[in-house]
Design a protein around this nucleic acid. Structure first.
Lengths: 334, 334
DNA sequence: ATGAAAGCGCTAACAT
DNA sequence: ATGTTAGCGCTTTCAT
């Protein structure tokens, strides 16, 4: 009863099968010409010995790891979980593994992760909604052979998955929609850390062009979590009870605001209309359901992975997958 | 402008610094004795050359990958996302990476993943709520040096994180609670694939001991997703409109049922009481809020990772982390 | 169709 | 405190 299981190596298989290591290697990799008889025999020995090739050894010589790195700000955010789901499915089909790093919305941790995950650790990288500024992110991405960014754009170094109508589209459309519905005092909650949402000042300007006034103090910024939305909602509504509508950067925040508003006795949508941003399941299930934008999260992930494999296979042309964001009117903003 | 970046190796650094490879290795690993001067000098050269150690080479010689494998049935299920979050945080502190595999509730895919992730790929493994039967799972786990199971138990090969009061606790308590509240026709939706929830027959028996009748046809089984719960809810309520309460295996299913019930004109809880199982965010936000059980998801993940590191560090004694499940009465089941 | 030799980049073990 | 030697397990030549 051997306590110390020693790893079965190619060499072991070769010896047992009475062939050379190369022959075994060829059988495993389905490469080169092998006589059916030998192949059969070797396969049996492999099976019998329970041989499993060493990833490390293979990686050392081929310089390929069979893994792709995925970096997300918050895996508990359904938006990111769906994207990871899409990535993972495509990776699985391609026989790749996913190295997942969660940065907890912490840019420093993201930078650390990104530099650890250099091209020795993964064959390709998908940073999802990176929270790092361009000048920090770009050099980090350059360390990698293949990169596809989601919701960020670096045409020189990475293919890209991003919204067709630009990053400010949702906030802009939401505010416009609310204004046209008659709202005069619209607040906006921008997402802290997110570098792709419309900035508060920008929204104010763009709305001014339509003769719609959004006052700076009706706006706020918070982390893209439910809790942050809840707190910000309480604070904003306490200070500015005059608000009749709020646009939030994503659903989690909008739903936090909704809860806060309800606690403060506001009826939704009569006293306060609300629009979110990414159509997570929760949005459709609350009462009233949250108006938001349909975003093809799974497809975003799946297509990012597909673009990544294209780059990993040597096609370094810049490619894009542009996803649509479609407004979904629901009870919270009729 | 060199197109072909060649990897900077230990050797390169050693040469540039005028020392041996070993010295550089020692500097990197903070191992052995090094004179401050040399250390300083070597560090500078490393920095200057942008040297990054090769994981593969290191793994090949040390037989350690610096990665732990995490296998989950469905990363978009908030229950699992939270657990992964906990695991990832602890792994990060220990300077480990997480190799995530999503099996999409597909046992065959889980088995494939588990056998690929053998001890050459990861230093440790955490299968979360495995959907594989004992006899399939056990041999797969044996391939690994270190394993911690969540919601499954194999004392001989793995430490374990599991509910203190056993796997049937929630369904049992829920049914009892509802019966005591006066419900006479209680249905139960068990989770397909999940091997840890109370089986329908078992619940029927246990309730019979309390003189509570649960009829087999009031019960159903479905996948642990919202959609499955929704469909099952529709079907069950259509066939058995006499039901006054339903216990579901988890929140996602309960919430799907809630939606179906509302669509069928049932008022919750007056016409139908509902109890879920794991207190995801969604549960607290719907109207009425879903009665469920508080489950320390993040802690489950974090502690599983801690137990795993203990095993990886050579302590192969069987250890457990028993988590509490606490009933949270809410509007859906007053 | 198969084999032999060389080496990927690193560290363990043993010098010095 | 630092260097030397010898592999880890595999694949890439290049032979045969």
């Amino acid at each position: 009863m051997p306590t110390k299981r020693k790893r079965v190596t190619l060499e072991d298989v070769a010896r047992a099968a009475g062939v050379s290591a190369m022959t075994v290697s060829r059988v495993i990799n389905h490469t080169g010409r092998i006589s059916p008889a030998t192949r059969q025999h070797v396969s049996e020995v492999i099976e019998q010995l329970g041989y499993r090739p060493s990833r490390a050894a293979r990686t050392l010589v081929t310089a390929k790891t069979g893994m792709i790195g995925v970096v997300v700000p918050d895996i508990t955010n359904p938006y990111f979980a769906e994207i990871v789901h899409g990535i993972e499915d495509v990776a699985w089909e391609a026989e790749y593994s996913v190295l997942l790093a969660n940065t907890n919305e912490n840019p420093a941790r993201e930078a650390a992760v990104l530099s650890q995950l250099d091209d020795a650790a993964v064959d390709g990288l998908i940073p999802v909604s990176s929270r790092l500024p361009d000048e920090t992110l770009l050099p980090l991405l350059k360390q990698h052979r293949a990169v596809v960014t989601i919701n960020r754009q670096f045409p020189r170094v990475a293919s890209c998955v991003r919204p067709r109508h630009g990053y400010g589209f949702r906030a802009y459309q939401s505010a416009l929609y609310l204004a046209r519905a008659g709202h005069q005092r619209i607040g906006y909650i921008n997402l802290q850390r997110s570098l792709i949402n419309m900035q508060i000042e920008t929204l104010i300007e763009r709305m001014a062009e339509h003769n719609i006034t959004i006052r700076r103090e009706w706006c706020a910024t918070c982390l893209p979590t439910w809790e942050a939305g809840y707190q910000t909602g309480h604070a904003l509504l306490a200070e500015h009870p005059e608000l009749t509508a709020i646009v939030a950067g994503n659903d989690l925040v909008a739903l936090g605001v909704m809860r806060a508003a309800i606690e403060l006795g506001r009826r939704i949508p009569q006293d306060l209309a609300l629009i979110g941003g990414d159509d997570i399941l929760l949005a459709s299930q609350v009462t009233p359901p949250l108006a938001t934008f349909r975003v093809p999260k799974y497809e975003i992930g799946a297509n990012a992975a597909r673009l990544l494999f294209a780059r990993m296979n040597g096609d370094l042309t810049y490619q894009e997958y542009l996803y649509e964001e479609e407004f979904i009117p629901r009870g919270s903003a009729p």
